[in-house]
Design a protein around this nucleic acid. Structure first.
Lengths: 187, 187
DNA sequence: GAATATTAGAGTAGAATGTTCGAAAATTCT
DNA sequence: AGAATTTTCGAACATTCTACTCTAATATTC
């Protein structure tokens, strides 16, 4: 009988992480269960013990991926007291993540809801709230501001590389942060 | 009747370049003719007008790739008079190229002769000869030195990423160049 | 050593892939 | 313009690949 484990077994994690690598490199269609299995040195049929189908595995990878992303983001948010520094790092990481995710989703049939990570908005809101309390930021509704920033990021990540040929670069973040701060910084 | 063209037709080049992109990203096996064709907006059967089989196309890509590499290297060698600068750029490019090539060859059955590019050795030898003539370098047999450097590079590219987890980084080149120069620089 | 958890081999139906062939369409030549 | 040639494409096919099932073997836990 199947056991409900609170912690994922290590094997399951291994599979998720290997699959995530392959999926993000080759896409859903081009990654076969054989590829995943042989990368792990196991028979492909063994995968069915852990996941009942390829698409279940894929979904699990997405979930695992985004939850580990949130963990990383949390770390960033706790890593410093300098709100400017936090936001810069955060923007960078988010863009990297979005890039990976878009690869992962490259071959998904229906458009996934949105690149919003659940929990991300809350984190950002809290940060902004704190900034307001500390009188570093102007008194703007933090929730609204959070959504605004997220949308902006989302838009940038999608469209900037299309408009210009190159991808988003270091200085883009600086510029973005700079503009954002000179607009919303108190005084 | 087939015509012997001195210049490859533009279409043929387009195909080679698109195929090269896909092959280097997905590997031989995972890149289908359909993938290549649809990337180019043409029917896959049309590819057979230019190349008589998939493996012929692949071979052509390898050939095209390495000849365009030599062209780039030549440019670097002519771009400056500072031998140190030239070598640094050259090492970097070579490593990038080696990475791409190893992807391309990832699924080739027999091990390809070697990662030596014909012509590369000559170019490097000439550069070193010049350095000796200009009394920038010690009097060491340039041919020998060229082979030595190439072997070293080859070894680095292969083994460094295996020994340490990370890939070759910027500072690795600097260190390498530095060591190399302090060892062979006159005075 | 019984019970359970995990792996792996054989097999299958359906999809994908490389390839051939002949005919349409586009281009070049006269 | 029309003939000759070059280039594209769709239909068809044999082979291979892939996701998946079933069943038995092996390892692990109790």
């Amino acid at each position: 009988m199947e056991q409900i484990t609170i912690k994922k077994t290590t094997k399951e994690k291994e599979i998720l992480e290997e699959a995530q690598k392959l999926f993000s490199h080759f896409g859903l269609k081009k990654t076969s269960l054989e590829d995943i299995a042989s990368s792990l040195g196991m028979a492909k049929t063994s995968l069915y013990y852990y996941f009942k189908s390829k698409s279940e595995l894929f979904k699990a990878v997405l979930k695992h991926e985004s939850s580990s992303f949130i963990k990383n983001i949390k770390k960033i948010f706790e890593s410093s007291n300098d709100i400017k520094e936090i936001l810069t790092t955060y923007f960078k990481k988010r863009t990297e993540y979005a890039k990976e995710l878009s690869k992962l989703r490259g071959l998904i049939a229906k458009a996934q809801k949105s690149p919003f990570i659940s929990g991300e908005e809350t984190l950002l809101t809290n940060l902004l709230e704190q900034g307001v309390k500390d009188e570093i930021l102007k008194k703007i509704n933090p929730e609204l501001l959070a959504v605004l920033i997220l949308s902006l990021l989302k838009g940038l990540e999608k469209n900037l590389p299309l408009i210009r040929k190159r991808e988003i670069e270091e200085r883009d973040y600086d510029l973005f942060i700079d503009v954002l701060f000179n607009g919303i910084l108190k005084k």
